[in-house]
């Protein structure tokens, strides 16, 4: 049994009186590649922000490495949904990646030689070192995505969160991107939020469907039954070209 590094228990969250998440439980083991799917407005991103500590649950508790998420910030990497934010900003690729090395923010904010070496190493690992002095606005979606992953990885996190990572890149770059994630998953736990079923390629190890409540499956496959439960309406199951596996029933109740 692997170590549980993220523990979401009995979490409720409301926004302007509207319940977004109800009694959500989720445990993520070290080394997992978890994909959180669900309809728009179903609470996927909210769940992610709770796990990052950007939001506080109304009820229940979120623990990352046994501590409140903000206290574990140095062990977490985060790739935001919209990498096209602020594209006209005058900043180079290397400076964006170095943001991932900022420490507590007290005192001198300069970067050390180690910071620069770490940034170079991670850009080389992702195959975009050649772009390090380019301005961020000159990059394509796929390149930007790698730069943002580099920014998340440069602090050597043990868990990597990705929010709608597929939204910013074209179809051509996607298969490359799965390879990158799969490679990373050998050393880093990955939690990815996506409304795109395509991410459920053979690399994914478990799936959670979120639509106010959460259905977890410890397998990289989803079933019609899971989708119906999560979306509360018939959804076409996308074929992944992965051999179908026999799934056990959800442990939690399905009455929503």
């Amino acid at each position: 049994m692997a170590e549980i590094i993220i523990d979401v228990s009995g979490v409720w969250f409301s926004f302007n009186g509207q319940p977004v998440l109800q009694d959500v439980d989720l445990k993520v083991e070290r080394g997992d590649f978890l994909v959180v799917i669900g309809p728009n407005g179903g609470g996927k991103t909210t769940l992610l922000k709770l796990m990052l500590g950007l939001l506080e649950p109304g009820r229940g508790a979120v623990r990352v490495f046994g501590r409140p998420p903000r206290k574990a910030a140095h062990r977490i990497g985060y790739v935001p949904q919209n990498v096209h934010i602020n594209k006209t900003f005058p900043v180079s690729v290397i400076d964006v990646v170095l943001m991932g090395r900022l420490r507590t923010g007290r005192g001198w904010s300069g970067h050390s030689r180690q910071d620069r070496l770490a940034a170079r190493a991670v850009l080389e690992q992702l195959g975009v070192w050649a772009l390090h002095d380019r301005r961020i606005g000159d990059l394509s979606g796929g390149q930007l995505q790698r730069v943002f992953i580099a920014r998340a990885l440069v602090s050597k996190p043990e868990v990597l969160f990705l929010d709608e990572a597929m939204a910013s890149i074209d179809t051509q770059s996607r298969s490359d991107f799965y390879e990158v994630l799969s490679e990373l998953n050998r050393t880093v736990t990955i939690v990815a939020v996506s409304h795109d079923m395509m991410i459920l390629s053979s690399h994914v190890k478990s799936v959670a469907c979120v639509n106010r409540d959460l259905h977890y499956h410890g397998s990289g496959e989803i079933t019609q039954e899971m989708l119906d439960a999560a979306y509360r309406c018939p959804v076409d199951l996308v074929a992944h070209g992965v051999p179908h596996r026999v799934l056990c029933r959800h442990e939690d109740s399905q009455d929503g």
């Binding site: 500590g53 903000r70 985060y78 935001p80 943001m99 991932g100 923010g105 920014r151």
Partner: peptide, 8 residues
């Protein structure tokens, strides 16, 4: 948002 996550 990212800056907050880095405890800036």
């Amino acid at each position: 948002e990212f800056a907050r996550l880095r405890n800036v």
